[in-house]
Structure formats: structure tokens, C-alpha cells
């Protein structure tokens, strides 16, 4: 019918950016986190370790949000709810004497997944602004539920007796041990998300973001894939909540305010949407800027706000975009 020769199978391989461009930034980021404790040993070690641990925990939360926001265009304004669920799973179980990390973690992940499944199935029936509003509403519901849990501290939250126990021992007690445990979780999340995004599942999710009608016209029901991604994202954010409770040894409704949900969006946009490691860079930039700026003034957001506006206006790809280190 036409004279186009069928190309050899080798020609089917899509050309990629050089390995350095593709993997350079993530490898650097993880190497920096792996080596940071050594540098921190020079001074103010406890402070630096705790700040970086916080960065990594927020990076997990933001990365999970990037999965649905960056790759699915689902603007969830209630993502902090999962931080709260993960944290309260630890707090509530610990207050009943169940301190096993394994049990707490399973509860945190299971509860997060279930909440994501139920609220996602409902929220996903709406689009655009309505989706934003309904996820916000579910987040707020959970926030007020937490403040009313007087048995678990209500507004004031509750203090944990200790960090979760691994094999019955307090292995996560040391700051270094906990730091590397969190780093391991961050790396695990990153590799999982990377894989998901490139997988058959992730390709449908990305396709539905570009053109949902086209996806339906080739036989996909985008809803199922978006809901699946929502559940995965919620579950990973539940892990971040589990870690957050353990770091602070404290659980409170403040973990799931709508402002926190907004901050997670800011972190993802700041770092660079739909890149995954951009969420790590965004979390680092956000928390370090907060740390530095709030040293000058308690109204640090007055400085941060305009900075964010500049990033959104002039660096569409976020910090990663400015560094030229993005890849598809």
C-alpha cells in the first residue's frame, strides 16, 4: 500500500536523554542525603539531622502528591489528611500499648489506603474546582474529627511514649538510625513511583491527563486508573505520617490542616511538577527557606510568597526547570 519499509526493531527504541541528564540529579540528591550526616558531625549535628529528616518526610508526602498532581492533574487540596492518618495510627495504637513499628505501619498504610479509596471514589466523580473543593472538605472533616477525639488529646494532640519498636527493641531511637530509616523509605518511595510512572499503569494515567476522551476512545476507563493512583498516593503519604509521628514523638491535628495540604502543593510546584525528585528538592527548598527566613522575621511568608510567585511566573518547571535537569 505504501513503500515505507518496516523499521528494524532496534529503531523502535525511543531515544532518551543521556544517562547523566536522566539520573544525574536524583543520584546527586540521594548521595547528598546519604552523606549529610557525616558533614553534620562537624557541628550542630542534632539540629541538622532533625531538619533534614523533616525534609525527607515532607519529600515523601510531596512526592506522593506529585504522583496524582503532576502525572494525573488531580489537584488534591486534602493530601495532608493522609499525614494525619499515618500519624494517628501510630499515636492511637501506641496509647493502647501497641508499639510495634510493623503493626503501626500496616495500620497507617491500611487506613490511608482505605480513606483514599472511599474519598477518592467519591471525589473522582467531580472535576476541576469541584474536585479541589471536595478533597478539601474531606481533609477538613478528618481534621475536625481529630480535634474532637478527646480520648487521644483532642486539640492538644498526644505525646508518644517512645518511637515505634522494631523487633521489640527501640532501634529507631537514635537520630542517625532514624535518619537512615527515613532515607531508606524516601529512596523506596522514589523507586516505586519512578517505576509506576513509566509502567503500563502510569502511561494510562499520563495519557488521561493529556486527553481523557482519547483514552476512552481507545478503550480505557480513566477513572479506575486515577482512583488507583489516588490510593497509592494516599498510602505513601500515610507512610510519611507514620514517620512524622515517630520523628516528633507527638501527634496532633495540626498535621492535617488545610494549610499543610496547601504547603504540599507549593512544595511540588516549587520543586517541579511531574518529576518526582522535584518534590525532594521542593521540600528541601521550602523547609530550609522557612528555617532561614523565619530566623529574620516571623512574617517569613511575606518574603516566601513573592519568591513563589516568581518561580511560578518565570520557572514553569520549578527549581528543577531552572536547573535544566528535567526529563520526561
Amino acid at each position: 500500500m505504501n513503500e515505507i519499509a518496516t523499521p528494524s526493531p532496534a529503531a523502535l527504541d525511543v531515544p532518551r536523554a543521556p544517562a547523566l541528564r536522566r539520573y544525574g540529579v536524583p543520584v546527586l540528591v540521594f548521595a547528598a542525603f546519604a552523606l549529610a550526616p557525616i558533614a553534620a558531625a562537624q557541628g550542630a549535628e542534632g539540629y541538622i539531622l532533625s531538619l533534614l529528616t523533616r525534609v525527607m518526610i515532607f519529600a515523601i508526602a510531596a512526592m506522593s502528591l506529585d504522583l496524582i498532581l503532576g502525572y494525573g492533574a488531580l489537584v488534591s487540596f486534602g493530601h495532608a489528611a493522609f499525614l494525619g492518618i499515618g500519624a494517628y495510627a501510630v499515636g492511637i495504637l501506641a496509647s493502647h500499648g501497641i508499639e510495634s513499628a510493623l503493626v503501626q505501619l500496616l495500620a497507617a498504610l491500611g487506613a490511608s489506603a482505605l480513606f483514599a479509596l472511599v474519598t477518592g471514589a467519591i471525589s473522582m466523580r467531580t472535576k476541576g474546582v469541584y474536585f479541589i473543593m471536595i478533597t478539601l472538605a474531606f481533609g477538613q472533616m478528618l481534621y475536625f474529627l481529630a480535634t474532637s477525639l478527646s480520648a487521644y488529646g483532642g486539640d492538644d494532640g498526644l505525646t508518644l511514649p517512645s518511637r515505634s519498636l522494631l523487633f521489640g527493641a527501640n532501634l529507631l531511637k537514635g537520630d542517625h538510625a532514624f535518619y537512615y530509616a527515613v532515607l531508606g523509605c524516601l529512596l523506596g518511595c522514589y523507586l516505586l513511583c519512578r517505576s509506576v510512572v513509566a509502567s503500563r499503569f502510569g502511561r494510562v494515567l499520563r495519557g488521561a491527563k493529556e486527553n481523557a476522551v482519547r483514552m476512552q476512545a481507545i478503550g480505557f476507563a480513566p477513572y479506575r486508573f486515577q482512583l488507583g493512583a489516588y490510593v497509592l498516593a494516599g498510602t505513601l503519604c500515610g507512610l510519611a505520617g507514620f514517620l512524622l509521628a515517630n520523628q516528633t514523638e507527638f501527634v496532633s491535628p495540626a498535621y492535617m490542616t488545610w494549610q499543610r495540604s496547601g504547603e504540599l502543593i507549593v512544595v511540588v510546584v516549587l520543586g517541579g511538577l511531574a518529576s518526582l525528585h522535584g518534590a525532594i528538592i521542593g521540600a528541601a527548598a521550602f523547609l530550609l527557606l522557612e528555617e532561614v527566613l523565619s530566623g529574620y522575621t516571623e512574617h517569613w511568608k511575606m518574603i516566601f510568597g513573592p519568591l513563589l510567585v516568581l518561580v511560578v511566573l518565570y520557572a514553569r518547571g520549578g527549581i528543577l526547570g531552572m536547573m535544566g535537569g528535567r526529563h520526561g
Partner: peptide, 24 residues
């Protein structure tokens, strides 16, 4: 993607879909 839609297993979370020789 249209070939993938027919193959019936799009809930796979692992493996780079863009390099699947069968689909391509």
C-alpha cells in the same frame, strides 16, 4: 497505548511500557 488497551493488563506497576517490544 491502543494496543495496550486491548492487551487487558494495564494495572501493571512495573516495567517500562514504552520499551515493550510486543506493544511497539
Amino acid at each position: 497505548l491502543a494496543v495496550q488497551a486491548r492487551s487487558g493488563s494495564s494495572f501493571r506497576l512495573f516495567g517500562d511500557a514504552s520499551r515493550e517490544r510486543g506493544l511497539n
